[in-house]
Design a protein around this nucleic acid. Structure first.
Lengths: 129, 129
DNA sequence: TATATCAATATACTTTTGTATAGCGCTATA
DNA sequence: TATAGCGCTATACAAAAGTATATTGATATA
Protein backbone atom coordinates (compact mmCIF):
# COMPACT_ATOMS: atom_id res chain seq x y z
CA UNK A 1 0.00 0.00 0.00
CA UNK A 2 1.23 3.54 0.70
CA UNK A 3 4.44 4.72 2.32
CA UNK A 4 2.70 6.23 5.33
CA UNK A 5 0.96 2.96 6.04
CA UNK A 6 4.35 1.32 6.26
CA UNK A 7 5.08 3.75 9.06
CA UNK A 8 1.85 2.88 10.84
CA UNK A 9 3.01 -0.72 10.58
CA UNK A 10 5.75 0.10 13.07
CA UNK A 11 2.82 1.48 15.04
CA UNK A 12 4.33 3.97 17.49
CA UNK A 13 1.90 4.70 20.27
CA UNK A 14 1.75 8.37 19.25
CA UNK A 15 0.13 7.33 15.96
CA UNK A 16 -2.54 5.37 17.75
CA UNK A 17 -3.19 8.33 20.03
CA UNK A 18 -3.39 10.71 17.06
CA UNK A 19 -5.96 8.59 15.25
CA UNK A 20 -7.88 8.26 18.48
CA UNK A 21 -8.05 12.02 18.87
CA UNK A 22 -9.57 12.31 15.42
CA UNK A 23 -12.05 9.58 16.17
CA UNK A 24 -13.04 11.35 19.39
CA UNK A 25 -13.62 14.55 17.47
CA UNK A 26 -16.49 12.83 15.61
CA UNK A 27 -17.61 10.20 18.10
CA UNK A 28 -21.29 10.09 18.92
CA UNK A 29 -24.46 11.07 17.16
CA UNK A 30 -24.10 14.84 17.22
CA UNK A 31 -20.49 15.98 16.88
CA UNK A 32 -20.31 15.65 13.10
CA UNK A 33 -23.53 17.61 12.46
CA UNK A 34 -22.37 20.33 14.86
CA UNK A 35 -18.93 20.60 13.26
CA UNK A 36 -20.72 20.54 9.92
CA UNK A 37 -22.73 23.67 10.62
CA UNK A 38 -19.77 25.43 12.27
CA UNK A 39 -17.66 24.88 9.13
CA UNK A 40 -19.80 27.60 7.59
CA UNK A 41 -18.99 30.17 10.26
CA UNK A 42 -19.62 31.37 13.80
CA UNK A 43 -22.97 30.51 15.26
CA UNK A 44 -24.90 31.21 18.42
CA UNK A 45 -26.35 28.45 20.58
CA UNK A 46 -29.90 28.77 19.29
CA UNK A 47 -28.74 29.02 15.69
CA UNK A 48 -26.94 25.69 15.99
CA UNK A 49 -29.95 24.21 17.75
CA UNK A 50 -32.13 25.25 14.82
CA UNK A 51 -29.73 24.05 12.14
CA UNK A 52 -28.99 20.65 13.66
CA UNK A 53 -32.29 18.82 13.24
CA UNK A 54 -33.76 17.22 16.38
CA UNK A 55 -30.88 17.92 18.74
CA UNK A 56 -31.94 18.75 22.31
CA UNK A 57 -30.36 21.65 24.21
CA UNK A 58 -28.91 19.16 26.67
CA UNK A 59 -27.03 17.30 23.97
CA UNK A 60 -25.93 20.49 22.25
CA UNK A 61 -24.62 21.96 25.49
CA UNK A 62 -22.80 18.75 26.35
CA UNK A 63 -21.22 18.30 22.95
CA UNK A 64 -20.13 21.92 22.67
CA UNK A 65 -18.36 21.63 26.03
CA UNK A 66 -16.67 18.49 24.85
CA UNK A 67 -15.56 20.05 21.59
CA UNK A 68 -14.31 23.09 23.47
CA UNK A 69 -12.32 20.94 25.91
CA UNK A 70 -10.73 19.21 22.93
CA UNK A 71 -9.65 22.45 21.31
CA UNK A 72 -12.00 22.09 18.35
CA UNK A 73 -14.50 24.79 19.21
CA UNK A 74 -13.95 28.22 20.72
CA UNK A 75 -16.67 29.77 22.89
CA UNK A 76 -16.91 33.52 23.21
CA UNK A 77 -19.21 35.33 25.63
CA UNK A 78 -20.12 38.93 24.85
CA UNK A 79 -21.40 40.99 27.75
CA UNK A 80 -24.52 42.23 26.10
CA UNK A 81 -27.72 42.01 28.14
CA UNK A 82 -28.68 39.25 28.11
CA UNK A 83 -25.37 37.62 27.20
CA UNK A 84 -24.58 36.63 23.65
CA UNK A 85 -22.54 33.48 23.20
CA UNK A 86 -20.82 32.56 19.99
CA UNK A 87 -19.27 29.28 18.94
CA UNK A 88 -16.70 28.91 16.23
CA UNK A 89 -14.17 26.35 15.12
CA UNK A 90 -10.55 26.80 16.19
CA UNK A 91 -7.93 26.64 13.39
CA UNK A 92 -7.54 22.98 14.27
CA UNK A 93 -11.31 22.55 14.13
CA UNK A 94 -11.40 24.10 10.67
CA UNK A 95 -8.74 21.66 9.54
CA UNK A 96 -11.20 18.86 10.20
CA UNK A 97 -12.70 19.80 6.84
CA UNK A 98 -9.95 17.79 5.15
CA UNK A 99 -10.98 14.71 7.14
CA UNK A 100 -14.63 15.36 6.33
CA UNK A 101 -13.74 15.58 2.66
CA UNK A 102 -11.91 12.27 2.68
CA UNK A 103 -14.92 10.74 4.44
CA UNK A 104 -17.21 12.21 1.81
CA UNK A 105 -15.10 10.82 -1.01
CA UNK A 106 -14.89 7.37 0.52
CA UNK A 107 -18.61 7.33 1.27
CA UNK A 108 -19.52 8.29 -2.27
CA UNK A 109 -17.29 5.68 -3.90
CA UNK A 110 -18.39 3.04 -1.40
CA UNK A 111 -22.02 3.67 -2.26
CA UNK A 112 -21.28 3.41 -5.93
CA UNK A 113 -19.71 0.01 -5.42
CA UNK A 114 -22.46 -1.27 -3.17
CA UNK A 115 -26.06 -1.58 -4.32
CA UNK A 116 -27.23 -2.86 -0.91
CA UNK A 117 -26.16 0.32 0.77
CA UNK A 118 -28.03 2.36 -1.80
CA UNK A 119 -31.23 0.62 -0.76
CA UNK A 120 -30.44 1.20 2.90
CA UNK A 121 -29.89 4.81 1.96
CA UNK A 122 -33.39 5.07 0.57
CA UNK A 123 -34.83 3.67 3.76
CA UNK A 124 -32.85 6.16 5.77
CA UNK A 125 -34.14 8.89 3.52
CA UNK A 126 -37.68 7.89 4.37
CA UNK A 127 -36.87 7.93 8.07
CA UNK A 128 -35.24 11.33 7.75
CA UNK A 129 -38.21 12.82 5.95
CA UNK B 1 -12.78 27.46 2.30
CA UNK B 2 -12.41 24.78 -0.37
CA UNK B 3 -14.48 24.17 -3.47
CA UNK B 4 -15.86 20.84 -2.31
CA UNK B 5 -17.09 22.39 0.91
CA UNK B 6 -19.08 24.85 -1.17
CA UNK B 7 -20.83 21.84 -2.62
CA UNK B 8 -21.56 20.45 0.82
CA UNK B 9 -23.08 23.84 1.56
CA UNK B 10 -25.86 22.95 -0.87
CA UNK B 11 -26.00 19.84 1.25
CA UNK B 12 -27.72 17.25 -0.94
CA UNK B 13 -28.98 14.38 1.16
CA UNK B 14 -26.69 11.95 -0.66
CA UNK B 15 -23.68 13.77 0.78
CA UNK B 16 -25.00 13.43 4.29
CA UNK B 17 -25.60 9.74 3.70
CA UNK B 18 -22.10 9.26 2.29
CA UNK B 19 -20.44 10.87 5.29
CA UNK B 20 -22.67 8.82 7.55
CA UNK B 21 -21.52 5.62 5.88
CA UNK B 22 -17.92 6.52 6.59
CA UNK B 23 -18.72 7.37 10.17
CA UNK B 24 -20.48 4.03 10.58
CA UNK B 25 -17.43 2.23 9.24
CA UNK B 26 -15.48 3.43 12.29
CA UNK B 27 -18.20 3.81 14.90
CA UNK B 28 -17.68 2.09 18.24
CA UNK B 29 -14.68 1.02 20.24
CA UNK B 30 -13.43 -1.82 18.06
CA UNK B 31 -13.97 -1.17 14.34
CA UNK B 32 -10.93 1.04 13.84
CA UNK B 33 -8.50 -1.38 15.55
CA UNK B 34 -9.95 -4.28 13.53
CA UNK B 35 -9.68 -2.40 10.24
CA UNK B 36 -6.21 -1.38 11.35
CA UNK B 37 -4.94 -4.91 11.62
CA UNK B 38 -6.71 -6.00 8.43
CA UNK B 39 -4.97 -3.22 6.49
CA UNK B 40 -1.87 -5.41 6.75
CA UNK B 41 -3.47 -8.43 5.16
CA UNK B 42 -5.84 -11.37 5.57
CA UNK B 43 -6.23 -12.66 9.07
CA UNK B 44 -7.99 -15.51 10.80
CA UNK B 45 -10.38 -14.97 13.70
CA UNK B 46 -7.92 -15.91 16.41
CA UNK B 47 -5.16 -13.87 14.82
CA UNK B 48 -7.29 -10.75 14.95
CA UNK B 49 -8.31 -11.59 18.50
CA UNK B 50 -4.63 -11.77 19.47
CA UNK B 51 -3.64 -8.59 17.65
CA UNK B 52 -6.46 -6.41 18.89
CA UNK B 53 -5.64 -6.00 22.56
CA UNK B 54 -8.41 -6.84 25.03
CA UNK B 55 -11.19 -7.52 22.55
CA UNK B 56 -13.56 -10.34 23.53
CA UNK B 57 -14.62 -12.95 20.97
CA UNK B 58 -18.17 -11.71 21.31
CA UNK B 59 -17.26 -8.20 20.25
CA UNK B 60 -14.96 -9.40 17.50
CA UNK B 61 -17.62 -11.68 16.06
CA UNK B 62 -20.23 -8.92 16.21
CA UNK B 63 -18.03 -6.29 14.63
CA UNK B 64 -16.81 -8.56 11.86
CA UNK B 65 -20.43 -9.33 10.96
CA UNK B 66 -21.20 -5.65 10.91
CA UNK B 67 -18.21 -4.84 8.73
CA UNK B 68 -19.12 -7.68 6.40
CA UNK B 69 -22.72 -6.48 6.10
CA UNK B 70 -21.38 -3.04 5.19
CA UNK B 71 -19.15 -4.37 2.44
CA UNK B 72 -15.93 -3.49 4.23
CA UNK B 73 -14.76 -6.98 5.15
CA UNK B 74 -14.96 -10.22 3.17
CA UNK B 75 -15.28 -13.52 5.04
CA UNK B 76 -14.04 -16.70 3.41
CA UNK B 77 -14.62 -20.19 4.78
CA UNK B 78 -12.26 -22.95 3.68
CA UNK B 79 -13.51 -26.50 4.11
CA UNK B 80 -10.56 -27.81 5.97
CA UNK B 81 -11.29 -29.87 9.07
CA UNK B 82 -11.95 -28.08 11.26
CA UNK B 83 -12.93 -25.09 9.15
CA UNK B 84 -10.54 -22.24 8.53
CA UNK B 85 -12.07 -18.78 8.28
CA UNK B 86 -10.27 -15.81 6.82
CA UNK B 87 -11.18 -12.17 6.96
CA UNK B 88 -9.88 -9.54 4.59
CA UNK B 89 -10.78 -6.04 3.55
CA UNK B 90 -12.80 -5.57 0.37
CA UNK B 91 -11.37 -3.08 -2.17
CA UNK B 92 -13.67 -0.51 -0.59
CA UNK B 93 -12.37 -1.50 2.84
CA UNK B 94 -8.79 -1.03 1.68
CA UNK B 95 -9.67 2.44 0.46
CA UNK B 96 -10.43 3.36 4.05
CA UNK B 97 -6.67 3.75 4.42
CA UNK B 98 -6.94 7.18 2.80
CA UNK B 99 -9.44 8.22 5.47
CA UNK B 100 -7.23 6.75 8.19
CA UNK B 101 -4.29 8.72 6.82
CA UNK B 102 -6.19 12.00 6.88
CA UNK B 103 -7.22 11.19 10.46
CA UNK B 104 -3.60 10.50 11.34
CA UNK B 105 -2.44 13.78 9.83
CA UNK B 106 -5.12 15.80 11.57
CA UNK B 107 -4.46 14.07 14.88
CA UNK B 108 -0.74 14.73 14.72
CA UNK B 109 -1.10 18.41 13.88
CA UNK B 110 -3.86 18.84 16.45
CA UNK B 111 -1.60 17.40 19.15
CA UNK B 112 1.20 19.71 18.14
CA UNK B 113 -1.06 22.72 18.53
CA UNK B 114 -2.50 21.59 21.83
CA UNK B 115 -0.32 21.01 24.89
CA UNK B 116 -3.29 19.93 27.01
CA UNK B 117 -3.97 16.99 24.78
CA UNK B 118 -0.33 15.93 24.99
CA UNK B 119 -0.74 15.61 28.76
CA UNK B 120 -3.95 13.62 28.32
CA UNK B 121 -2.02 11.46 25.91
CA UNK B 122 0.52 10.59 28.55
CA UNK B 123 -2.24 9.54 30.90
CA UNK B 124 -3.75 7.39 28.20
CA UNK B 125 -0.35 5.86 27.63
CA UNK B 126 -0.21 4.85 31.27
CA UNK B 127 -3.69 3.33 31.01
CA UNK B 128 -2.73 1.48 27.85
CA UNK B 129 0.41 0.05 29.40
C1' DT C 1 -49.48 41.43 32.49
C1' DA C 2 -48.65 37.42 29.39
C1' DT C 3 -45.71 35.42 26.25
C1' DA C 4 -41.36 34.67 23.91
C1' DT C 5 -36.26 34.42 23.32
C1' DC C 6 -31.60 33.39 24.96
C1' DA C 7 -28.29 30.04 26.89
C1' DA C 8 -28.44 26.85 29.12
C1' DT C 9 -29.22 23.19 33.57
C1' DA C 10 -31.82 19.40 36.31
C1' DT C 11 -34.01 15.13 36.81
C1' DA C 12 -35.50 10.90 35.37
C1' DC C 13 -35.54 7.67 32.12
C1' DT C 14 -34.61 4.39 27.89
C1' DT C 15 -31.59 2.57 24.55
C1' DT C 16 -27.34 1.22 22.90
C1' DT C 17 -22.92 -0.45 23.57
C1' DG C 18 -19.60 -3.11 25.75
C1' DT C 19 -17.99 -6.68 29.45
C1' DA C 20 -17.58 -11.06 31.93
C1' DT C 21 -17.91 -15.68 31.87
C1' DA C 22 -19.09 -20.02 30.27
C1' DG C 23 -19.72 -23.25 26.77
C1' DC C 24 -20.25 -25.65 21.98
C1' DG C 25 -18.50 -29.20 18.37
C1' DC C 26 -14.54 -30.25 16.21
C1' DT C 27 -9.45 -31.94 15.96
C1' DA C 28 -4.49 -32.23 16.97
C1' DT C 29 -1.03 -32.95 20.33
C1' DA C 30 1.01 -34.70 25.01
C1' DT D 1 -7.42 -39.58 28.45
C1' DA D 2 -6.40 -34.60 29.26
C1' DT D 3 -5.47 -30.42 27.38
C1' DA D 4 -5.32 -26.93 23.97
C1' DG D 5 -6.64 -24.59 19.77
C1' DC D 6 -10.18 -23.16 16.38
C1' DG D 7 -14.41 -20.17 15.40
C1' DC D 8 -17.53 -18.92 17.34
C1' DT D 9 -22.55 -18.38 20.45
C1' DA D 10 -25.37 -17.74 24.93
C1' DT D 11 -26.57 -15.52 29.01
C1' DA D 12 -26.36 -12.04 32.24
C1' DC D 13 -24.91 -7.82 33.51
C1' DA D 14 -22.71 -2.92 33.74
C1' DA D 15 -21.66 1.34 31.73
C1' DA D 16 -22.16 4.84 28.36
C1' DA D 17 -24.90 7.51 25.37
C1' DG D 18 -29.00 9.66 24.21
C1' DT D 19 -34.09 11.29 25.11
C1' DA D 20 -38.01 13.66 27.26
C1' DT D 21 -39.60 17.16 29.81
C1' DA D 22 -39.44 20.89 32.84
C1' DT D 23 -37.20 24.92 34.64
C1' DT D 24 -33.92 28.89 35.42
C1' DG D 25 -33.11 34.29 35.30
C1' DA D 26 -32.62 37.77 32.44
C1' DT D 27 -34.85 40.85 28.82
C1' DA D 28 -37.83 42.21 24.98
C1' DT D 29 -42.22 42.43 22.81
C1' DA D 30 -47.45 42.35 22.41
Amino acid sequence: MLKELEEIKRCPVSYVLAINDTLNAFQGKWKMPIIGVLLFGKKRFKEIEREVAKITPRMLSQELKDLEANGIVKRTVYDTIPVTVEYELTPSGKNLSTVVESMLEWGLQHRQSNIKLKITGKEELRKMA
